[in-house]
Design a binder for these strands. Structure first.
Length: 170
DNA sequence: ATGCATGAGAA
DNA sequence: TCTCATGCATA
């Protein structure tokens, strides 16, 4: 196409390279300082106001995030590293006794996932009518299928995408 | 470590 | 409705 996106392919890859380097060193330092992913997330409250979950810290270390998000978190984590170096704040864990129980995660069968994956590869963003039909054929709630596609699209945008499903054996 | 989910904000 | 950042629940 006529898109001029080939502007700075090198700048982009070095950007990613920097993130990979930082993420790797971050994990090493984190462990040297005696912190768990959960501990870092909690300690962030001191440096930037709000804490982060173990999930997010884990995803940063593995760069399973969008480039933008990863860069933002890098600055925050770099700051924390600086603080943790100077004075070790208590690496306390947090308790949450929320009343709100989230809906139980629905488990999508491996077979259905293969169909969803195949559909996605053909069309990343099926029209609502198509999703409706797909959900019906899979025997899954429409919102589950809709969310699956949303999450699948997000995964495509990650720096380090997770491996996709192995091909279905027919 | 990762799968499915939530919610705020954009379009 | 989608994107995007984020996390509870679970493998």
């Amino acid at each position: 196409t006529g898109l001029s996106i080939g502007a700075e392919p090198k700048a982009l890859s070095s950007e990613v390279q920097d993130l990979e380097d930082f993420a790797r060193e971050f994990k090493i330092r984190r462990i040297q300082l005696g912190y768990t992913q959960t501990g870092v997330g909690a300690a962030l409250a001191t440096v930037q106001g709000s804490p982060l979950s173990q999930t997010t810290v884990c995803r940063f270390e593995n760069l399973q995030l969008s480039l933008c998000n990863a860069c933002r978190l890098r600055d925050i984590l770099a700051q924390w590293l600086h603080h943790a170096d100077i004075n070790r704040d208590g690496l306390g864990e947090v308790h949450h006794e929320n009343e709100w129980k989230r809906k139980r995660r629905t488990s999508i069968s491996i077979q259905a996932k293969h169909i969803l994956e195949a559909t996605f590869l053909r069309q990343a963003r099926p029209p609502p009518a198509h999703l409706q039909a797909l959900a019906l054929s899979l025997g899954l709630p429409h919102h589950v299928v809709r969310v699956w596609f949303c999450n699948r699209r997000q995964r495509e945008k990650r720096i380090h995408s997770q491996p996709s499903l192995p091909p279905a054996l027919d």
